[in-house]
Design a protein around this nucleic acid. Structure first.
Lengths: 239, 239
DNA sequence: AAGTGGTCTAGACCACATA
DNA sequence: ATGTGGTCTAGACCACTTC
């Protein structure tokens, strides 16, 4: 039987407590894959919450892909799906998530004016100040990618304070990227890139252009990367 | 001033009508970028709907990225973001969305048993029946990609009834894919691929492996594609 | 006919932002 | 202090599924 605990004194919203409680029990297998959840009205009685609140809790788990609803029939536990989707993470986070140790060789780290193209993408004047961050990214000591980030300087801490992770630096100054847009293209390595990545000329390269924004839409960063095609798979979840 | 019409007789839910009405007015520029929406309570009065309904309508537009909320302050119009994200669309839909005419040359279209790898991905026995659909995909008459789809036969209409769009066929049998997972990799064209795509050997190729599922998690389809790297950008939105 | 999710209302109190 | 979004309740009716 399902039990749903709901602490009264807690400051976390009730619907999140209920969602967490349900998620835990599903993950523990107390509700089997394909089985129906108790009906929303039953959950109301079990938790003492109103139906709107129950629906909000269940809605959370549906967005996570853990449950799905069938009108007139019930709410059911989805079949297992491995990863929820690693949205908008940077290279360092990605590497850690894969259990690898990220490394970094700085190619450039200075302030400059944006090029015309960069200014157009960032929607700032060409006279404004941007940080130009060029890095070779390593994983387990092996070069995996070249990243060239252009960041609006006013949104970033002083560049001397920036460690290997750009996103950690943005976080520190309260400008966590919330939205983004990526273009991925297959291409061939230029001689320079081949050298930096220790691969042959004309080897396959995955080029990624990323533009990220704050929640209010302000553009923060324009990054062009070149990933080794033989080592890197770009993975996305679809809905 | 904002006006929000809400037809009473209509069968479409109120919150969707309101969301549509707001979306239209934002797109028409009647509420400027960066401006605040009327408060939720004001929208209640303007529409005659309750606050829960207003919040559901606004929530829709926030998921679309059109609006964002600031607690204690208001709900604001995001800066323009081009495309809402072309999630889980097929080649035909994509081409139409770009305003291009898709074409298709069939390489194979038959029933068979899955290979060991395919069976593992689809989570079906190697003795089960699958449809094997091989196509060269054209856009504006030019070959753009090679697609090789393996589909669980029981979820598909008889293959004779399948037109150029696999997703349209799945839709017809009530098995619209709802979830998916993609891997994108840069690679080089094999001689066969080069021939089918009218490009040189060892040209850049974007390889995409896609696994799609029904809402309940049942795996439908495993598709391996090879896109011309010089013509195709793979675009994703990040959150 | 009974049970389920889908939608909707009219209130209420809280935490946060702004002035 | 006022207004905003964030949460929550106790009901209600509808459409759909299942028996």
């Amino acid at each position: 039987m399902i039990d749903v605990s709901a602490e009264k004194g807690s400051s976390t919203p009730l619907y999140i407590q209920i969602a967490n409680s349900l998620r835990r029990q599903i993950n523990e297998g107390r509700i089997a894959t394909g089985d129906a959840l108790p009906s929303e009205r039953d959950l109301c009685e079990l938790t003492g919450a109103s139906r709107v609140t129950i629906r909000k809790a269940v809605g959370q788990l549906i967005e996570e892909g853990l449950l799905f609803r069938k009108q007139g029939s019930g709410t059911f536990v989805s079949q297992r799906i491995e990863v929820p989707g690693t949205y908008l993470s940077g290279f360092s986070d990605d590497a850690h998530a894969r259990g690898q140790e990220p490394g970094c060789i700085w190619l450039m780290k200075n302030y400059a004016n944006p090029t015309v193209e960069e200014a157009a993408v960032l929607k700032v004047p060409t006279t404004s100040k941007v940080a130009r961050l060029g890095r070779v990214r390593l994983s387990e000591g092996e070069p995996l990618a070249i990243e060239h980030a252009i960041v609006v300087a006013s949104l970033l801490p002083p560049i001397e304070e920036i460690g290997d992770s750009l996103y950690a630096a943005l976080e520190k100054s309260g400008n966590r990227p919330a939205l983004g847009h990526q273009k991925v293209r297959a291409s061939l390595a230029t001689p320079t890139e081949a050298g930096l990545l220790s691969i042959g000329e004309n080897s396959e390269i995955l080029r990624i252009e990323r533009v990220t924004r704050l929640a209010d839409g302000t553009i923060i960063e324009f990054t062009r990367s070149a990933y080794r095609g033989d080592r890197y798979d770009f993975v996305t979840e679809l809905r």
